[in-house]
Amino acid sequence: MRWRAVLPWLFAVIGVLLLVLPLIGTPEYVVTLATLMLIYGIAAMALDILVGFTGLVSFAQGAFFGVAAYGVGVATTEMGITNFFAVSGFSVMLAVGLSVIVGLIALRAKGVGFIILTLAINELMWGLAYQWVAVSGGDNGLIGFVRPELFGISLSGTDSFYWFSFGVLAITGALMYLVVRSPFGLALKGIREQPRRMKALGYNVWVYQYMAFIVAAFFAGIAGVLIAYYNEFVGTSILNLAQSTQFLIMTILGGTGTLWGSLLGSGIIVALQNVISNYTMRWEMILGAIYVAVVMWAPEGILGVAQRLLTRRRRGRTAAKGVVEVRPGDEGTPQEGKG
């Protein structure tokens, strides 16, 4: 069977498996982990819109994720908002609002400068959460909000919250799929490959990149709302370097430019973290080693490697160049300073 023909079936099987996961006697902690995987997956997939489709490598995804999570904490415990949709709307808007400002600044820089600025935003948000104790609760974080009840169904249970997260993933995943398949998404791909040529064709490259940045932040915000309710707690650890950069390694590990690869990457990282944490305290060290190993030996990610192996077997040729290997000076950020 051909690779392309297998794929939809594979997705269907995985999708059905995920849907019925709590029903087939899965241990509760596995369902809890699967929920985490879905939540991280949303943010990582959204990041893929930037990394894989637009060619912009951003570390700010964790900042938007974290800020939205803090939004939930602040809205519920400090502003007294109880309506779930109001809380979510507020938190997602917080992330989007931040991305509107950050995007304006970060996209002024080119190539590596953009990456550094987005990384700096992360650290700044961490610093803000750590030091602005009056709002963020500082080191203690924010506690005292619980999972909501939606349309008469309480989400406090492990299974119900899993299905809720699955539903959100299904909707946001479909939306993201539509985004990357839309003319807008195709233009992003064009910008990834040939920013100058796209500019010559009359596309306002900067606006497209800016929009992609905001779209990614929007979905990261949704995931951030979920993680806040998942933990029923928000603390500074959500914004620390290892946490907030993990989305990028999830995306790369799965395979950039595939959207679904990020979900796979999220699943692998979450599973590894929990398996390894049973044996050792040194998860962060191993995560670091995973970064190094993936970037050195499998920059095109698992889906990329799989595709390469399958293609090679069939046609005896090598394909699938890693998206990580961005050509110097062609990273997709505006080539000219004024954009």
Binding site: V112, I115, T245, I252, W283, I290, V292, M296, V324
Partner: peptide, 16 residues
């Protein structure tokens, strides 16, 4: 970009 990500991994390893 490759070297940047590697140094990020190294920094996680060293911190831990």
């Amino acid at each position: 970009l490759t070297t940047l990500l590697i140094t990020l991994g190294v920094s996680l390893i060293l911190d831990d």
